[in-house]
Simulated scan of single mutants.
Amino acid sequence: IGLALVSPWIVGFLVFTLYPLLNSLYLSFTQSTIFGASRWTGIDNYVKLFTNDIEFWPSIRITLLYALLSLPLGVIGALLVAMLLNNKLRGIGTFRTIYFLPAVMPEVAVALIWRWMFNSETGIINYTLSPVYNAFGWPRPDWFGDPSYVLGAFIIMSLWGIFGTNTVVFLAGLQGVPKSLYEAAEIDGAGALTKFRHITVPQISPVILLQVIMGMIGALQIFTIAMFVRPTTGAGKFMNQLVYERGFTQMQMGEASAIAWVLFLIILTLTLLVFRSSPAWVHYESEAKR
């Protein structure tokens, strides 16, 4: 009876997770198309990526830079917004609902809105900043047409992720901090910054770890917004974009699978590094620090 009850999950895991995972690993060592036969080529796909692929290294560069710059902004921004929403004010429930709305908006619609906002001629961002451009004699930036502005535009768009689920998770963590700790600190004369540093951050450090891990994985796997915004390829393509184009546009599933596994190894390595560093800054109440 137990196996019968868990069999839907087991079948789903085997068919939709484990088999595609192992098959993609096999395809990365082959020359394969979507509908054609596969031919074993060993590590040729990986050798080509690292030595003779003009799109691969720019793809790694822009993907890592985007994750490196957007992650701290997203985590810190979501924490600050959550701290504001943690105050007991009239109508605070309405504000919490408003700040959660980005989590339920379709990502495609959001991408198209950002594409319009960053339009170099009619976009609201250049229109709003036009007095600044005119005062300093700067030309209007072509956000998605000039390679030097593409990464900055995506960093600005990533700030949208501050709101929604990230803020709600931090808010839940903040509400779990015992009020008695703040009261004791106030009696001892601690200020707001001291309480934040020595009470809030240690108490919600497991939540911060979760947000760092999930935010890093999400940033490295950026895809939908990049595909619909369609920036110039001169700045490089994000790795998931490159996987899609090699596999479903150029029909080279072997190369696409190899890029996907390189991305997986990058994510795995960075995740393990974060976990390895966590004992130095993550505090759990059930553990005694020595």
Rank of each mutant, 00 (worst) to 15 (best):
F223H: 04
F154P: 00
P147N: 09
I208G: 03
R246C: 03
T249H: 12
H198M: 15
V168M: 15
A184R: 13
I199Q: 00
M253N: 10
I199D: 02
F154L: 01
V169W: 06
I208M: 14
I217D: 06
G145V: 00
N240Y: 12
L242W: 03
L220T: 03
D146P: 05
L171Y: 08
A192P: 10
I225A: 07
V168E: 05
V169E: 10
I222Q: 08
V262D: 00
S180L: 11
L159T: 13
T167D: 08
D146F: 05
G152D: 06
A190F: 10
L193I: 13
F144W: 02
V212F: 06
M216P: 04
P202K: 09
P141K: 13
S205N: 11
V262L: 01
I162D: 06
V207Y: 09
G234W: 03
I225H: 12
M216Y: 06
V168C: 04
I259S: 01
I199F: 08
G234E: 10
S257C: 13
Q175K: 15
T224G: 07
V207T: 15
A258E: 06
A256S: 13
R246K: 15
P206Y: 03
V243P: 02
G236A: 00
V169A: 05
G191M: 02
A219P: 08
G191Q: 12
W261A: 08
T224V: 14
T167F: 11
Q250G: 11
K195W: 03
G215S: 09
I259G: 02
M253T: 15
A219T: 05
E255H: 11
W261R: 01
Q211F: 08
M253F: 14
M216Q: 01
M253E: 02
G234Q: 12
G215A: 06
I187P: 04
G161V: 01
V201E: 05
M214H: 05
L181K: 08
M251H: 14
L151A: 07
V207F: 11
L159R: 10
L159D: 11
A219Q: 07
I156D: 02
F238L: 14
L174S: 07
R230E: 14
S158V: 11
I222R: 08
F170W: 08
A256W: 05
G145N: 02
K179W: 09
R197W: 15
A190V: 12
I162G: 00
D146K: 04
V207W: 07
Q211C: 09
I156N: 07
V201Q: 07
F228I: 10
I155K: 03
M214D: 01
W261C: 02
T224E: 11
G152C: 11
A153F: 10
A219S: 13
I208N: 00
Q211E: 15
A258T: 11
L210N: 08
A258W: 04
E183Y: 07
D188Y: 08
V229R: 05
T232Q: 08
T249Y: 06
G161S: 13
I187T: 09
S180G: 06
G191C: 04
R197Y: 12
L220Q: 00
L181A: 06
P178W: 07
V168D: 09
